[in-house]
């Protein structure tokens, strides 16, 4: 018999906030507000990490996603086209989006439920910076380095793309 604790209820409530804000991101016709809703979504996900006692991951989420990526996104939107009020010319195919979104969401949900249904999830250790560092730099150091090479490649690619005009 599982007991529903206060943390479970909060996890659900914050999850609802995250999903609701995410829906607002893709459904609002105010361009910049979509970016601001993304802040709410990512913030709510950070709170979910906190509730799972993964403090470090939570603040990484805030530092990288809210503090840097969304800001960069908003910056780019404001630099190009950021009307106040509704945009009527947004290209939004509703049905394909619903199909893909709901399909992948449900698919992932059933996959996780199926995988962990029998043995459940053993309570993970508290996500301190120390444990995370040990995991990344001892057990997962090769994937970590490979990922950084991938990022480097993306960076070089971006530079090449933006240099294109200078040559011609």
């Amino acid at each position: 018999m599982t007991v529903i604790t206060l943390a479970d209820i909060m996890f659900g409530a914050v999850g609802l906030v995250a999903v609701g804000a995410a829906l607002a991101v893709v459904s609002t016709s105010h361009l910049v507000r979509a970016g601001l809703w993304l802040v709410v979504t990512l913030g709510a996900i950070a709170v979910e990490f906190l509730l799972l006692r993964a403090e470090f991951v939570a603040w990484v989420q805030v530092l990288i996603y809210v503090g840097a990526i969304v800001v960069l996104l908003l910056f780019a939107v404001m630099l190009t086209k950021a009307p106040i009020g509704r945009s009527t010319d947004l290209d939004r195919p509703i049905w394909p989006a619903l199909l893909v979104g709901a399909g992948s969401g449900l698919g992932l949900a059933t996959l996780f439920a199926w995988v962990y249904a029998s043995d459940g999830i053993s309570a993970p250790p508290v996500g301190s910076a120390e444990k995370l560092g040990q995991n990344i730099f001892r057990d997962w150091v090769l994937p970590f380095e490979v990922l950084s090479v991938l990022l480097l490649a993306a960076l070089v690619g971006a530079i090449v793309l933006s240099k294109k005009d200078a040559k011609s």
Partner: peptide, 28 residues
């Protein structure tokens, strides 16, 4: 007292720029 207080401060201070962007854009 937070275990990762330094990281917390750095993350949270970075959020301030969102407010600046909000103010800047919404002022029309």
């Amino acid at each position: 007292p937070l275990d990762i207080g330094l990281f917390f401060v750095l993350a949270i201070v970075g959020v301030g720029v969102v407010a600046v962007l909000m103010a800047a854009w919404s002022s029309a």
